[in-house]
């Protein structure tokens, strides 16, 4: 296997959600990246923000790629909880483009806020007009750049819209600190739940 290109910045090309995360993370922060894939986000955060941390990944090939990229990767299944990480032990817990593919979505978000002081998630917005269009008028499950699967082979089991996620937060004592909605790599300001295909949220547990 050839390790992915060494330069973290190049490694994030084509992943605007990761670039957004990188922009939000404070310098020298401690970071836990759930579903870290080949580890390039962590590597990028280390190189550009001086951030240190760990990635969690379940798939063998991605663990191997993360090791090759010199990342602290812990092979574990998110669905079984975050063993090894104490309460409030990280500045940020990240989950990029994975939320929609996990089974225990609610438990994982709460686990992120147990371990991290703040959490950052990115997910494809099912409320994007194109998705709505395909369901409403085409009568078919949406397929797009951010949702590139057919209904029968998709790993996505918990798709949601921006409005769904915000309602979830309101109902779970979660305060949203920052929101960025993107389409085609560009921010969307007006009618984000209709015009945005990718959502990025930073949030924390509301004080009791």
């Amino acid at each position: 296997m050839t390790p992915a290109k060494a330069n973290g910045r190049d490694g994030l090309a084509g992943r605007p959600d990761l670039a957004a995360i990188a922009a939000w993370v404070r310098p020298q922060a401690s970071v836990l990246d759930l579903g870290c894939g080949d580890g390039l986000l962590l590597r990028h955060l280390a190189e550009t923000r001086g951030a240190r941390g760990y990635g969690v990944e379940v798939e063998d090939e991605k663990v191997i790629a993360s090791v090759a990229n010199g990342v602290n990767v812990i092979q574990a299944d998110l669905e079984r909880g975050l063993w090894g990480f104490d309460d409030g032990s990280f500045d940020y817990v990240l989950l990029s483009l994975t939320l929609q593919a996990v089974r225990h979505t609610e438990a994982i978000i709460l686990e992120m806020l147990r371990v991290g002081r703040e959490a950052i998630v990115t997910f494809p917005n099912f409320g994007h007009w194109h998705a709505r269009w395909q369901v409403a008028l085409g009568g078919r499950m949406p397929v797009s750049d951010t949702l590139p699967y057919q209904w029968y082979d998709t790993p996505n089991v918990h798709l949601c819209t921006i409005r769904d996620f915000e309602r979830f937060c309101a109902g779970h004592g979660i305060r949203i600190l920052e929101r960025l909605v993107l389409h085609g790599g560009r921010p969307v300001g007006w009618l984000p739940n209709l015009r945005g295909s990718l959502a990025v949220f930073r949030f924390e547990r509301r004080a009791h």
């Binding site: 401690s30 760990y54 063998d60 191997i64 602290n72 990767v73 812990i74 092979q75 574990a76 990480f85």
Partner: peptide
């Protein structure tokens, strides 16, 4: 991890 040491962990099936 408690000591913030660099560690990679693989659990081979």
């Amino acid at each position: 991890i408690d000591n913030r040491r660099d560690v990679a962990y693989a659990e081979i099936d």
